[in-house]
């Protein structure tokens, strides 16, 4: 990985002007004791795949809902040799992605990239890249609501019990309701999964199209929920199965279109209204993947 980093050319980086490295901050903003605390939570989470580990989430210089959980996990994992990629809904150039990338550049002066293969640490909001993740990559999800049982059971003491005793039958109620109303499972994002045949887990609001990518992935997948103060994880090569019924198997649905920019037929697409007449265009949500195909 380090070797790869050495050959990254400068043109691979988008340099945001006006944000110089600020040496007054500790590396990656958080103090070392906080990082230590978070790393302990991460290690525990990796030992018990899918289990939500409570941690003392810190106030971050950004509002809740902007990825404070993911940012704390990323800050705790980051080393000076890392190359960071930040995506929001698959894109590297949307507000949330740009802000968080700037935040880390300002506080840690590390290299950043938009190229999935070249990143050693990727923080994401709501997507998994189309380019398969690799060994030794760390993939950090921003999580709004970590508890998949929350919609069924408002009491946290009760959901903890349900998890510890694997009382997951009621989880299928939501899927049942989908089928009875729509004839198929309508849930399109934050589609619940069972991790390592044990814990039911909310994969964060990624489209269910991405769910299969979590299964048996060589990368380390970490989930951070700042407001809810929970960290959970999927260690490399772990079974991740999406919930379904025997007669309604899981279906990683996507729009029946090819990308209007790169022509890709098997990637997740954003639907964009392009004019006042309501005409639509479908384009890859993963900007890096789309750019690479287009430039080929």
């Amino acid at each position: 990985m380090r070797k790869t980093n050495n050959v990254i050319k400068i043109k691979d980086f988008k340099v945001d002007k006006g944000l110089p490295f600020d040496q007054e901050y500790n590396f990656a903003y958080l103090d070392e004791n906080t990082k230590k605390m978070i790393r302990r939570a991460i290690i525990k989470a990796l030992c018990i795949p899918g289990y939500q580990v409570p941690f003392a989430s810190r106030e971050m210089p950004m509002p809740y809902g902007w990825g404070t959980g993911g940012v704390q996990v990323t800050a705790s994992c980051l080393t000076k040799r890392d190359t960071l990629k930040i995506i929001d809904q698959g894109a590297d150039d949307t507000t949330n992605a740009v802000s968080i990338r700037n935040f880390f550049k300002k506080t840690s002066n590390i290299k950043t990239t938009e190229i999935t293969e070249k990143a050693t640490l990727i923080q994401t909001r709501h997507r998994i890249p189309e380019t398969p993740l690799k060994k030794k990559q760390i993939f950090v999800y921003q999580v709004p609501i970590p508890e998949p049982l929350a919609f069924l059971e408002p009491k946290v003491s009760e959901t903890i019990k349900m998890h510890s005793l694997s009382e997951y039958g009621a989880m299928h109620v939501k899927l049942y309701e989908d089928i009875s109303k729509n004839g198929h499972i309508e849930t399109a994002y934050a589609y619940p999964v069972k991790t390592n045949d044990r814990y039911i887990m909310d994969p964060s609001p990624i489209p269910k199209f991405d769910n299969p990518k979590m299964n048996n992935s060589p990368a380390i997948q970490l989930f951070g929920a700042g407001r809810e103060q929970r960290i959970y994880a999927i260690p490399p090569y772990t079974k991740v199965k999406s919930l379904d019924f025997e007669d309604y198997p899981f279906d990683p649905f996507k729009a029946e279109h090819a990308c209007d920019i790169c022509g890709s037929k098997n990637t997740y697409l954003d639907e964009i209204i392009v004019d006042d007449a309501g005409n639509k265009s479908f384009i890859c949500s993963d900007t890096d993947f789309c750019n690479k195909r287009k430039n080929k």
Binding site: A170, Y176, E177, S180, F245, E246, D247, Y248
Partner: peptide, 22 residues
């Protein structure tokens, strides 16, 4: 559960004892 359909309410009991065939 008042936010779940009649069928879903009845079905939940089945799902909680392991039924997985819609």
């Amino acid at each position: 559960r008042l936010n779940v359909s009649a069928g879903g309410n009845i079905g939940e009991k089945l799902m909680s004892v392991g039924y997985r065939h819609y």
